[in-house]
């Protein structure tokens, strides 16, 4: 009787699919606005097909078996496509778990006369489907993590542009919190740009930095020191009153660094350092 389970499932493939579809369509949570019934049917059929094909008496108790590879692949595909279509992970999970109901129903019908075997098979099938459900969550989370990772990289890249304001003057507006890895990127970009353009003044604008603690200040001082070693002057601008307060309260010594309240005054300072003058044009009489 026991050995028959796999065969039964293979034989009853059509029935399993029918019961499953019926249950899904009858479910109040059916999202026919996100996926059409035909698509849903194709998706479900593919999964049932892969399941009954890879299932054997040997691997039924072993969810880690490599023979389930194709099933997991399909599950990953379903998870990703559903995430894109706008299903919540809960809905995807329910979709997979509803397969369990239909499988169990078939087992129940087949093994009505052998409760012990039925019980054993029910547990095994449950475990298998549970593992499938978890796999979809895993894929979902992995997909999300990839997106987050990509975005983090993008933020690091786009948020550190070095701008050539004038011949010999570079500006670097820093937006967002400065941590060690970002300081490294900022510093490298700035120094590289100083070498390339031969600039002698760099303005570090921190108006976009939400808070300055001793660590951030340390990073700023490092950047200024490195710029100085290269032979350029570094001005820090965009210091808001709150930040000035914090810096003094924390006892951070910025006396060796030229600081300006705004980018404009930093630029004015830079011009005077380079002996440049900006004047209003005289009107032609």
């Amino acid at each position: 009787m026991k050995a028959d389970l796999v065969k039964t499932l293979q034989k009853k493939k059509k029935q399993i699919l029918e019961i499953w579809m019926e249950k899904q369509l009858a479910d109040a949570g059916l999202r026919d606005d996100l996926i059409s019934n035909e698509e849903l049917r194709i998706q479900s059929e593919e999964l049932v097909q892969a399941l009954v094909q890879s299932i054997t008496e040997k691997n039924l108790g072993n969810v880690e078996s490599s023979e389930f590879e194709p099933v997991y692949e399909i599950l990953a595909g379903i998870s990703l496509s559903r995430a894109k279509q706008g299903f919540s992970p809960r809905e995807t999970g329910i979709y997979i778990f509803s397969l369990k109901d239909s499988l169990l129903q078939v087992i129940q019908e087949e093994m009505r006369d052998d409760p012990a075997a039925m019980y054993a098979e029910t547990i095994r099938i449950s475990k298998l489907v549970d593992s499938f459900g978890i796999a979809t969550f895993e894929t979902f989370i992995k997909g999300r993590e990839e997106v987050i990772y990509r975005q983090t990289n993008e933020i690091t890249e786009i948020s550190t542009p070095v701008i050539r304001v004038w011949d010999g003057i570079l500006a670097l507006p820093i937006i967002g919190t400065l941590d060690s890895s970002r300081t490294q990127v900022v510093m490298e970009n700035l120094l590289q740009e100083i070498v390339e353009t031969g600039s002698s003044i760099a303005i570090l604008d921190i108006s976009g930095v939400p808070a300055v603690d001793s660590l951030v200040a340390q990073h700023l001082i490092k950047t200024v020191s490195a710029t100085r070693l290269m032979g350029a002057e570094c001005i820090i601008s965009g210091i808001r009153p709150e930040i000035a307060q914090t810096v003094v309260h924390l006892g951070i010594d910025l006396s060796n660094i030229t600081t300006k309240a705004s980018l404009a005054s930093a630029l004015r300072h830079a011009f005077s350092q380079l002996h440049l003058e900006v004047r209003k044009k005289q009107k032609q009489q």
Binding site: Q184, M187, L191, L229, G231
Partner: peptide, 11 residues
């Protein structure tokens, strides 16, 4: 003429 990498290292 200090190289950027050298400047960062020293700091």
């Amino acid at each position: 003429g200090m190289q950027p990498a050298v400047a960062i290292t020293l700091v």
